[in-house]
Simulated scan of single mutants.
Amino acid sequence: MTTKQAKEILLLYRGSIDDGDPQFREASAHAQGDPELAQWLREQTSCYNAIRSKLRELEPPTDLSETIIRHRPIPFRRDWMQILKLAAAIIVSASITAVGFKLSERKRYSIAQGQEILVKGEVLDMTCYIAYNLSGPDHAECARVCIRNGLPVGIKSENGKVYLLTGKPGHSVNAELADYAAKIVTIKGKESIRDGFAQLQVEEIRKF
């Protein structure tokens, strides 16, 4: 087993629940002989445990089961000809809507993009920030691991505005930004707005 293969397997590792799986045992054994992979695994496990802990704090609504039962679809007699007609109508409608949306989106996007700006703020792991409002020094290690593993990265400016950070087409900026997780940096790039969501195509990262 190569280090790359072991890392791909361990990316799905959930702790003791997976210890009995031969694949995870082999990958874990490989990590014990590779200091760099072992360090990555410790960081990955720490991030997973932090997210799992937050999920455990969530309590489902007391009436969830009743709500699910109440909204179960009612069985109906299958008239296949009617179903086919309905499916065809949906496909045609969806196609027209998609074309219209694309044209509208292109027009809006061309107007809203291209302005070069400087943004100073904290580098965010967008997944944990959006889902659990996690940021700051206490979340730095988890954020660094998540960003390094390819999860969306962003920046929260001093005025509170959050931007999704992207690279040029075909280029990811995660590797460059992972070590700045939860730190204050200044990003120079081109601002764009898509469906109301601010993005910043990174051109330069300044460590202040």
Rank of each mutant, 00 (worst) to 15 (best):
C47F: 03
R56W: 09
Y129I: 02
K188D: 05
A50T: 01
R78H: 14
S172M: 00
D179R: 14
S16W: 10
P35K: 15
H171M: 02
G170H: 08
Y132V: 04
G100L: 15
Q44P: 03
I117N: 09
A182D: 04
Q115Y: 12
P169S: 13
A175K: 13
Q44A: 11
L58W: 03
E43N: 07
D19P: 08
D34E: 10
C47M: 12
R108S: 03
P152C: 01
G136T: 05
T2W: 01
D19Q: 06
I69D: 09
K207T: 08
A143Y: 11
H71T: 15
R148G: 12
L200W: 12
A31D: 05
R42K: 15
L124T: 07
R106T: 05
Q115W: 04
V99G: 02
A94E: 15
P60V: 05
M1E: 00
R206H: 02
L86N: 15
D138W: 00
A143H: 10
E191Y: 05
R25S: 13
D18N: 02
V173H: 01
L64R: 07
E105N: 05
S95H: 07
K188T: 07
A182E: 08
T166H: 06
I147F: 00
K107W: 08
D19K: 08
L10K: 03
G121M: 07
V185W: 07
K107H: 12
I117G: 06
Y129N: 00
D79L: 07
P75K: 03
S28Q: 14
V153F: 05
L55M: 13
R56M: 14
D63C: 01
Y48C: 01
R25G: 09
I205V: 15
L165N: 03
P61I: 14
G160W: 09
T45M: 06
T3R: 14
I68T: 08
K188N: 10
Y109D: 04
A38K: 14
T166N: 10
G196Y: 15
R144G: 00
D18F: 05
K183A: 06
A140L: 11
